[in-house]
């Protein structure tokens, strides 16, 4: 059975899968960031990424090349994320988790609608971030754009990790997420660390959107919704309280989805999402806190 397998083809599919998985991973880490700070899944995360992408698209229409537009957008998204948190999340900061979650669903509608309102509904296209030429490694042709996307996604996550691990501000943010009360007593302004978390998450989302959009060819205002679903699934697969878990979970999910789409023909596009979620459900039933999540010890 295995004799007939075209290993070069499999390698290509794995790299392509890692590439889409890298996009999921970036967004998944954004979800984890906000989850650890406030205990909610930000349902608007994907739409915020979409909005950032559309801002970048506007910049490229006004003479910006891809990478300058990328940089400007990521910085603007960081500021925008902080502003949004101050305006909308701050007032419900002490409300129940479910209330905050519903506010993010409200944000989902607002951001999605605003994008349709500002940029008319017809589809857009972005210039490519990377060369479209293939590159040959060990006799197998890989797309440069796939490798580039993997690189940028991992770099973004790595930078974030360095920030959390080696700066005082990063330490303060981790402390605030872990124990808000004690952090307040040591003089950390917890409310502002949450705002900063939103800024970082929105900037990460911008990276995800800007990586995801060009390979699609054409995209509209709903293009981030399936990606948010996969990012959510990847984060939960890895364990929602672990950033490393979210990255590994998302990469694994990207590869799995790509192999599923290529080699299992009866899983059409319709059932792809369902199949992916079913597998994750299976994993969760064996490991209820995800692959890398910490299970709260509870004897009942």
């Amino acid at each position: 059975m295995l004799v007939g397998v075209d290993w070069a083809g499999v390698a290509q599919q794995v790299v392509a899968g890692l590439s889409s998985g890298g996009t999921y991973a970036t967004l998944a880490v954004a979800l984890v960031l906000i989850y650890r700070a406030t205990g909610v899944v930000n349902f608007a995360q994907g739409e915020l990424a979409m909005f950032s992408t559309f801002v970048a698209w506007t910049l490229t229409r006004h003479g910006f090349a891809y990478w300058p537009a990328f940089l400007v957008t990521v910085l603007a998204s960081f500021a925008g994320g902080i502003a949004l948190e101050r305006a909308v999340i701050r007032p419900v900061e002490r409300a129940s988790v479910l209330t905050i979650a519903i506010v993010t669903i409200g944000l989902f509608f607002i951001v999605n609608g605003a994008a349709f309102w500002i940029w008319s509904p017809e589809v857009k296209s972005m210039p490519n971030a990377f060369s479209t030429r293939p590159i040959r490694i060990g006799g197998v042709a890989f797309a440069i754009s796939d490798l580039g996307i993997i690189g940028v996604s991992l770099l973004a996550v790595l930078l974030l990790w360095l920030f959390f691990r080696f700066t005082k501000l990063g330490l303060a943010m981790r402390a605030a997420a872990l124990n808000p009360e004690s952090s307040r007593l040591t003089g950390i302004r917890v409310s502002w660390t949450i705002a900063l978390g939103w800024g970082l998450a929105t900037a990460l989302g911008a990276v995800a959107g800007l990586m995801a959009a060009p390979p699609l060819g054409s995209f509209d205002q709903n293009f981030m919704q399936p990606i948010l679903l996969y990012a959510f699934a990847g984060a939960v697969l890895g364990g929602i309280d672990s950033a490393l878990g979210a990255v590994i979970g998302s990469l694994a999910l990207g590869v799995f989805l790509n192999l599923l789409g290529t080699y299992v023909s009866w899983v059409g596009t319709d059932l792809r999402q369902a199949a992916a979620l079913a597998v994750i459900l299976g994993v969760l039933l064996v490991r209820p806190a995800g692959l890398f999540g910490k299970l709260a010890v509870r004897r009942v």
């Binding site: 519903i102 506010v103 669903i105 409200g106 944000l107 989902f108 509608f109 607002i110 951001v111 999605n112 609608g113 605003a114 994008a115 349709f116 309102w117 500002i118 509904p121 205002q221």
Partner: peptide, 11 residues
């Protein structure tokens, strides 16, 4: 998109 914005704002 406008109705979506109003609905979200109401929520």
């Amino acid at each position: 998109g406008a109705p979506s914005v109003f609905f979200g704002t109401a929520i």
